[in-house]
Design a protein around this nucleic acid. Structure first.
Lengths: 131, 131, 131, 131
DNA sequence: GTGGTCTAGACCACC
DNA sequence: GTGGTCTAGACCACG
């Protein structure tokens, strides 16, 4: 089994958090369905070329968040997440990101119009890449 | 002299970075004009209720960025910043923030429309607070 | 043959222990009489939707405790349990559980009265369910 | 600084969980007041004769629960806990313990009266020890 | 095979 | 000095 997770060695963001962010996104976006069996700790560690411990931490953190469910000797599964909760989390995470961007803009005295321009430009470029 | 800098004690973001971000924004946005004399390290530390070491680091980092200039025995001043450079930095910092927000949105499968909605809602709420 | 055993897939308690606890209780409480023939390992595994290895372990553990007896090629039976021993075990198991509860209460500074209230409330609710 | 935490080497309960349980109890019972500075990871590890990593895990888990607050370079503090939440948690933890005890009793066919007797006996003995 | 715990030890970031 | 991250490697419990 393969997971679309990419790590940036040089980022200041710790490895375990990069993995958590991306795996969390896969789950709350629904790309990993409920009850999906994830790769074992050892497998994922090998895939991502990081330590078993780092992966274990990821799985455990996400279990504490209620996104995963693990059974010793069996494996780690995507937990049942209430759709409402999932939607709320989805919305919250994106809203927080945009709020941070707007704050950054205001700090350097960007006007509403300037920020709207920037947003649209960024979005347009990014959507171009997707295709 | 007073500076509009607010620290969030509970944030995970380190103190020195919170200060740097806000002070940098004050300079880049032009709210602190060229040649303005900043408070001494000890004064600012007292104002922000943090360690002098932390403030020292801030002044040094921003001096390395070319935004501040220190004259022995006199104090720390806002450096002359080329207008072009300043504009470019302004734009870059905000663009980066929006790019990050769009990435976060894509990770949880937000459509272009959803993100536009969220952006507008966030902006509207934020501008309401300003007034 | 059917046994009133219910497994909680999501509990942190391992499967084999959940089964042991409930089967032991059935024997100690006398609901499974001496010499009763239990289901075969394979049957019980099928009933409980778990691995034969797990059931095998349960039977073996309880045999080691002296609660079960296996006759080659015949099956597994409830062993003769001395009435005194049985009563003592019954009492001990429940006393231990209550001692643990009281400890938990003391740890968070519950008074004797508070704990008595909680006990009575829990008991009342639980007996309501029984009816 | 000293903390009344006792570890049982031979228990099946993992070290980190023993520490968490006791430290959590100290906080939600109010014996450790808000903003109290806890011993550093290294100190507590030395005190408890366990690994730094084990203590770190404890602090981090309790921070995730919202009971602790840590700042790099500064230390780990008892977080402000809403009184309502604290009381609810207190009640819940004890109620759960008693519910488990009652379940154990019912499993071995204890009557309501028997359990009440056992509870009172246990409580009486335990309170005797306290004095 | 799976996950769970604990260890020692290194290096970094922060104050 | 503080906490934060990552590592390798061991051993146990579970199915």
């Amino acid at each position: 089994m393969w997971l679309p997770i990419e790590l940036n060695e040089h980022s200041a963001e710790p490895l375990y958090r990069q993995i958590e962010t991306q795996l969390r996104a896969l789950i709350i976006s629904g790309r990993l369905a409920e009850d999906t069996l994830l790769p074992s700790i050892r497998e994922l560690a090998q895939m991502l070329k990081c330590s078993v411990i780092t992966v274990r931490r990821v799985y455990q953190d996400l279990e504490n968040e209620g996104l995963l469910r693990t059974r010793q000797g069996t494996g780690t599964f995507v937990a049942a997440v209430d759709t409402d909760i999932r939607d709320r989390q989805r919305l919250e995470s994106v809203t927080a990101a945009f709020a941070a961007a707007v704050e950054a803009g205001l700090r350097v005295k960007c006007s509403e119009e300037e920020m709207t321009d920037i947003f649209q430009r960024v979005m347009k470029e990014r959507m171009g890449l997707e295709r």
